[in-house]
């Protein structure tokens, strides 16, 4: 027995069994097992930020050298563009004033006016095919608190869908990207009364940077190039967030019409994202006192 306890293979086996048990326990809702990794997070996050910023500096420096001529030409073109835009701006200011007047008059609602939008930077990306969540530098301390069964949409700077927040800690959030196999959102063609279907991540399409549209009504005609947006069904995502464009449609099986969608957001190139949190109006609670009691 003593010999067995000293055997490195026996120790390794016990460690592997304990780790497997921890991994399964971490899937339970509200599992405290994840807290065991908090000290590691405290130590490694600053170190990783340092390596990332050093890498960014080297990349920027290299770009500055290689892109020198292109930047000069771009600068010249941009100066001309600025002059053009200044002229357009003065014209637009007047149009904006008119729009505000009309908006008030017609009670037009901004598309996402019921949402508070938080900015965040990407700390780390997916490390391989399976270790594929994205980490953001905003958490519960920044107002992004997530209750069980809830989730928030994550958008890029052009307001295209990137994924959804699935876990938050005090200082960080984890995002399930749009291409992940576990991702699902109700989508529709971006037109009045557009047909709705499910947009999901798919392991085979992921490597091509595509996602899958399924549960499509076979009587509906879809074609490549159509824009897909969120339909708002399900309640997690508001209606109208751009997802991408249809690349191919497969009508070969009338009972299972599918389409591939090329998302607008290029997750690999993103640095900053936005988290949309539904705005909840705080109602003042008033104590009602009954006289004579």
């Amino acid at each position: 027995m003593k010999k067995l306890l000293k055997s490195k293979w026996f120790i390794a086996l016990i460690v592997l069994l304990v780790l497997a048990a921890f991994a399964i326990l971490s899937l339970l809702p509200g599992s405290p097992i994840k807290n065991l990794l908090k000290p590691v997070q405290l130590v490694t996050t600053p170190a990783q930020s340092l390596v990332k910023s050093a890498g960014d500096t080297i990349t920027d420096f290299w770009s500055a050298i290689t892109d020198g001529i292109a930047i000069r030409e771009e600068n010249k073109a941009l100066k001309e563009q600025i002059a053009d835009l200044r002229y357009q701006l003065t014209q637009s200011e007047e149009a904006a004033l008119r729009y505000e007047e009309l908006k008030d008059a017609l009670h037009i609602k901004d598309t996402f006016s019921n949402y508070v939008i938080y900015g965040a930077s990407i700390l780390s990306r997916e490390s391989d095919e399976w270790f594929s969540t994205i980490r953001l530098n905003a958490g519960a301390a920044d107002g992004i608190a997530l209750s069980e069964g809830n989730s928030y949409p994550v958008l890029d700077v052009e307001m295209n869908l990137v994924g959804r927040v699935i876990e938050t800690s005090d200082t960080e959030s984890r995002v399930l990207p749009l291409l992940h196999e576990g991702f699902a959102v109700a989508g529709k063609v971006n037109e009045v009364n557009g047909v709705t279907f499910m947009v999901v991540g798919d392991a085979e399409l992921k490597r091509q940077g595509l996602c899958l549209a399924k549960d499509i009504d076979p009587d509906v005609h879809l074609e490549p190039g159509m824009e897909i947006v969120t339909s708002g069904d399900g309640g997690l995502f508001p209606e109208g967030i751009p997802i991408g464009v249809i690349e191919t449609v497969d009508y070969s099986n009338p009972l299972e019409v599918t389409a591939t969608i090329r998302p607008y957001s290029q997750i690999g190139k993103l640095e900053d994202v936005f988290i949309m949190i539904p705005y909840v109006e705080e109602t003042e609670e008033t104590d009602v006192t009954v006289p004579g009691v």
Partner: peptide, 10 residues
């Protein structure tokens, strides 16, 4: 452990 902190699987 660092991988589980940086990019855990979902």
């Amino acid at each position: 452990m660092i991988r589980d902190v940086f990019s855990p699987p979902a």
